Simulated assay, not measured.
Amino acid sequence: MKQIPLALVPPPSGGFESLLQGPNAAAVQHLRSLVMPAAPIYLWGDSGTGKTRLLRALAAERQREGERIGWFDAQDPLPWTLDEGWSLVVVDGCEALDAERQQAAFALFVEAGSHGVQWAAAGRLPPIDLPLRDDLRTRLGWGHVFALQALAEGETRAALRREADRRGILLSDDVMDYLLTRFQRDLKHLMQLLDRLDEFALAEHRAITVPLLKKMLAEQA
């Protein structure tokens, strides 16, 4: 279990201003304008479509208002317990919930509803196709459901550039070309690679270049 105020959710943790909406504008706008508590929210799509990033943006926005968040995913140890001081409960990776965590998620859903706590969740599959118990699958699907899509190449470039600018990193065109032609183009993996590259450049006291990227990959292989 992760409580957002304790900074246990990994970066990037910027709000909606750090996101490129692309084909997911409807989901972004819904979350940005959300007046809580509202109907439950479920985001689904392939890896790299931005599900977790959108949930982090929602959590970051609520934190800015001084609210407290409960965050759970399929790998978190039990028990999962609702804190009545939370304004939002997030469950990520719903497709990977085992039987015990399905029970825990269902109990959280019911308890959150009874205490006026907003519910948001995400998974790789639409609710109807989730390999979950019927009562949990039904509840995940009865609120606002958004199917997310991967960004096009131009949008992926813009998202990487925006994140690099946010970090104060100069990401040259040749580095960008190298990233997009030699690695998976989904944003999740590219952002993770940017995290590693940022840390490596700081440790090496060097600017980010293609030779530095190659050195990092060779040393971390």
Rank of each mutant, 00 (worst) to 15 (best):
Q102M: 08
L130Y: 07
A104G: 13
T209L: 11
Q184Y: 07
Y178N: 01
E153V: 07
T156R: 15
L130E: 05
E204I: 02
F200G: 01
V110P: 04
F146H: 11
D186P: 03
L180G: 00
H115A: 10
P77E: 15
L160P: 06
L160W: 05
V110G: 01
R166W: 14
G123E: 08
L197V: 01
L151G: 00
P211G: 07
G168S: 05
Q102I: 07
L194S: 03
L78G: 02
A203Y: 08
V117C: 10
W80K: 00
R185K: 12
D186S: 01
L202Q: 10
L148C: 04
P77A: 08
I208K: 13
T209I: 10
P131S: 04
G113W: 13
P79K: 01
F200E: 03
R206E: 12
D134F: 06
Q103V: 08
A147Y: 04
V175A: 05
D198Q: 04
F146T: 03
L179Y: 04
A120P: 07
V210E: 09
V145T: 14
T81W: 06
V90H: 12
G116W: 15
W86E: 10
P77M: 05
L148Y: 04
G143S: 07
A203D: 07
T138M: 05
G123P: 09
D177H: 14
T181H: 14
T138P: 02
A121K: 06
H189E: 14
A107D: 14
A207V: 07
R167C: 02
M191S: 06
I169L: 15
E204R: 15
F106T: 01
L151C: 00
L193T: 00
G113T: 08
E155D: 11
R139L: 03
E95F: 12
L179M: 15
R133S: 00
L179P: 04
T138N: 06
L108D: 03
G141E: 06
A112P: 13
V117N: 03
E100A: 15
T81K: 11
Q149E: 14
L187G: 01
D134I: 04
